[in-house]
Every structure is written in structure tokens, then in C-alpha cells.
Nucleic acid binder design. Sequence first.
DNA 1: TCCAAATGTTTTAAGTCTAAAATGTTTAGG
DNA 2: CCTAAACATTTTAGACTTAAAACATTTGGA
Lengths: 164, 164
Amino acid sequence: MTLDSETKAVELPEDHAEELRLWLRLLTCTTLIEGEIRTRLRERFDVTLPRFDLMAQLDKAPDGMTLSDVSKRMMVSNGNVTGLVERLVDSGHLDRRTSETDRRVQVIRLTKLGRAEFRKMAAEHETWIADLFSELTPKDVRELMRLLAKTKGSAQNAVQRRQT
Amino acid sequence: MTLDSETKAVELPEDHAEELRLWLRLLTCTTLIEGEIRTRLRERFDVTLPRFDLMAQLDKAPDGMTLSDVSKRMMVSNGNVTGLVERLVDSGHLDRRTSETDRRVQVIRLTKLGRAEFRKMAAEHETWIADLFSELTPKDVRELMRLLAKTKGSAQNAVQRRQT
DNA sequence: TCCAAATGTTTTAAGTCTAAAATGTTTAGG
DNA sequence: CCTAAACATTTTAGACTTAAAACATTTGGA
């Protein structure tokens, strides 16, 4: 038995430099891609990324979503969604109404205009993503999907542990 | 030769659903981890993530950095850095001075207090990262590093192409 | 030398974001 | 039925963020 394995129990400072480097690289990739998508959305459609993201959620839910649903899906705070929705209602892209069965709940959905504009943006958006990832082989994509799924699970469990 | 390969030249709408799913998963992982780090920094040290990130950059540069350097490294706008630095100077964590050779340039560095506080936070931060990635094997980490490096390169080239 | 272009930073206006407190509504247990 | 807890949303205060314009300084030719 090595000294190392004996001393682990007393929580010697371990080296996690590799994980730290991995995190920074993950963050760099996301920031880089997010910034590029943001720029293209603004230049091509004069729309912000958060608005596009919110419309993307609603496009997948023809019957609408509650603000809480949206907030959980987008992983942003409730208050954030309130303001975002307000601006999109003002611009005619969203419809907001109080649930008939529970007056606490606001149900939002895309208007006809909102859906039409989103579909146009989404089509181009998909080509941008393809462009950004174009140097990855199908195998790279599959392997990244697998490893990121594992990463997501690991992170979710860590969050869970803290919240306990 | 298939119909598909013949028609590619006329830019039929291709399917990039896999890349889109990959992007969303990448974004989810980053958002999840970033949110957890943000929460822990606030609860444990009452500091925001952007401030921590800025101090992390400066910790690696004992001789200080210019605001432009910081802005490029953090991949945020110049104006963003101005405000961030201002608050950290006010709280005594940063020292800012005008370059003696070029009066346009502001050089910032950590104060003794700033460095001491950052080192304490960084030590815990590293254990949080290790915790968040703890279900990944060393091989997973290596493989992710490789694939994310490739992704970064691919994205950088796409940005380059648009800017041309 | 002069001055236009380049460079570094700050300012501005608007939007995004968070955590926490406040408000309104529903639900469940006594 | 009552009411405390739970739930959904909004409000608040402050920080962060961006793009674009403005400002200050330096640099590289003509």
C-alpha cells in the first residue's frame, strides 16, 4: 500500500487540475458558440438570444406553457421570464392568458406572427450550428453526446448532494 | 450515385438535428455547472462569478494585465470589464494604474487582499469542480478534452469565415 | 510635421439576470 | 369551514452584459 492511498482518508489536497482544465474548455466552447449565435441573430434578424430561446421552447409546445415550465426548461429565474415574456407580448410574438382552472398560473404561447418568425429564424439557426460544428465527424458528435450526457448526470447528482 | 449526393450541390435543406441536439446538450451542461458554481460562490464567499473569473485571470498574471487583455481572455465586451474592475477596485481587491509607456492603457492587478481572498476561494472552487465531474473517469476526461478542443477549433474557424 | 487611421478605454442605452421579498391563489389538515 | 403551508408569479434592487458611440492617445505614412 502506498503512502498516498493511506493518506487519502485525511483529505490531503488532491490534484484536480485536469477537471479544472476540462471545465474551462467546456466554458470556452459554449461562450464562443453562444457569442457567434448571438451576433448572427442580431445581424440577421435583430433579435436577442434569450428571446430566440424562449420562442424555441414555445414552438415545441403548441398548447402553451406556464411561466414556471419555461423557467425550469430554460434554467433561468422566474423573474427573468416575467420580463422576457412581457417584451415579447408587447412585440406581438406571444400571447399570455391566465389559466381558467388556476388563477395563479399564466399560460403563454406563440402567436401566429411569433411562430412564423421563429420558424424562419430556426431554419437558419440550424445551418449556423451545422457550420459551427462542421469539423466534427458523425462519430465525434455521437461520442460528445455520450460524454456530455454523462457529465450532465454527474453534475446533477452533485447539485442534488448539496441541496440535501 | 444516389439522388442525395447529386442534389447536395443545389443546397437542399439538410438535416442537422444531431448537431443541434449536441449544441443544446453542451449548453445545458455549461448552464448547470455555471449555476452551481455561482450559487456556491455566493453562499460560501458572497462573491459573484464574474468577479471570481476576473480575479482568476489576474492571479495568473503577477505583473498585471491591460483591460483589453482581460476582455479578450474572458471573452466579454470592453465596457463590461470597465464596470467589473471599478467595483473590484472599490472593494480593495484590485489595483488600477495607467501605463507609463502608453497613457491609453490601464494596467490592473490583484492587491495583496485580492490575491489572498482569491487563493482561498480557488482552493475550494477546485474541489467543487472535482465534485461536479466526479462520475467521469480519467479516460472520459481525456476524451472530452480532445473532442472539445476539436469543437473549439471548428467553431473558431466558423467565426473566422463569417468575419471574412 | 501633420493628420488620418488605429488602438484602448469609457460612456450610454437597453436588455438580461439573479436572489429575495412581496403578492395573490390554491390546497390540505384539523 | 379555517388557516397554515405550498405554489405561481411579480416586484425590487443590484449586478452583469452587449453594441455602439464617444473620447483619448498613439502610430504610420504622406
